[in-house]
């Protein structure tokens, strides 16, 4: 087991290294020299050469990658030429907003999908099940940003439950979370619909298995069969799905941040793509890529913990 775990972690590190390498490479092939951007087109040869040396651009590519990675690991994410400040300082306050949005969304998905999935499976074929099926089918078809516009229109403009302007944590944690609840809803609803269907299907699949018959034969009531036996088995694919979903939530956050004008990583990413501030784009891409790889690792690890049949390989 321990050996297998070490191997997994080694694989994780290798993947992370590869991902950072790709991200670095992708942004190294951009045509155009950053020296022109900084010094302007009428800079002298000497000025350019001096700046290139200062920026380390005269080194071979692999060395530049190693330097960049070392800096990155030390928290030096480069310098934004457009904002004229270190990328790390630029991103730090924005990471919090995105993190909160992601966390609230994830919590909503869990809270919405697990009870609904169980209820739908428990009353399979009944009115409630059918209603849930129709509802999830429709909800799944709504892109996050449209859901965001819908939530904004309904709750902010019609019902006036919240103000559609960003409330930062400085204004109070409760107010901040109350505001974040609405964009999180837009992120969470379509994903929840998928999770509901997955869980319902998984439970129904498990109910057909032989061990369920055994459980009934021992005198378990239906609720006990679900609770004690079926749920743990049915949750294995769902937990894996939920862990992988975090990556999708982050992607959806980017779009929804735009709808609700939340100053998060996503909004920064879009702004900097527009401004062609590649140092910032690169840093955000690397951060998001690490999140995605981490989520996949987490999903895999959870799967192994939950299913005793998977031996450490």
């Amino acid at each position: 087991m321990a050996k297998a775990a070490v191997k997994r972690v080694a694989l994780l590190l290798a993947t992370l290294l590869l991902v950072t390498l790709l991200a670095y490479a992708a942004f190294s092939v951009i045509p155009g020299d950053p020296t022109h951007t900084i010094l302007g087109l009428d800079a002298t040869e000497e000025q350019i050469a001096a700046l290139r040396k200062e920026l380390g651009l005269d080194l071979p590519v692999w060395q530049r990658y190693v330097n960049w990675l070392t800096d990155f690991l030390h928290g030096d994410l480069g310098k934004s030429y457009k904002f004229n400040m270190p990328v790390a300082d630029l991103l730090a306050p924005r990471v919090q907003a995105t993190l909160t949005l992601t966390a609230v969304s994830f919590a909503l998905i869990v809270v919405i999908s697990i009870p609904l999935g169980i209820v739908a499976a428990r009353f399979r074929g009944g009115f409630v099940d059918r209603a849930i099926t129709v509802l999830t089918q429709v909800t799944m078809s709504i892109p996050n940003f449209i859901m965001g516009i819908g939530v904004m229109f309904l709750f902010a403009l019609v019902l006036h439950i919240f103000q559609p302007t960003y409330v930062s944590p400085e204004a109070g944690l409760a107010a901040h979370l109350w505001f974040m609840f609405f964009p999180a809803l837009a992120v969470a609803l379509p994903k929840s619909a998928m999770a509901v269907r997955l869980l319902r299907g998984a439970i129904l699949g498990e109910l057909d298995k032989d061990y369920v018959r055994t459980a009934y034969s021992k005198g378990n009531a239906t609720g006990a069969v679900l609770r004690r036996h079926v749920l743990r088995n049915a949750m294995i694919p769902v937990v894996t799905f939920l862990a992988m979903t975090i990556a999708d939530i982050v992607a959806a956050s980017i779009v929804v941040e735009q709808v609700f004008t939340i100053p998060g990583l996503g909004q920064m990413l879009i702004t900097c793509i527009g401004k062609r501030d590649y140092a910032v784009v690169q840093a955000i891409v690397v951060i998001l890529a690490v999140v995605v790889v981490g989520c996949n690792f987490l999903a895999d690890a959870l799967y192994r913990v939950m299913d005793p049949r998977i031996d450490g390989r």
Partner: peptide, 16 residues
């Protein structure tokens, strides 16, 4: 009353 089944492979809950 109790019962045992044909398939001992699948009649036990794999995660218990």
């Amino acid at each position: 009353l109790s019962i045992i089944f044909q398939e001992p492979m699948t009649s036990l809950n794999p995660t218990m």
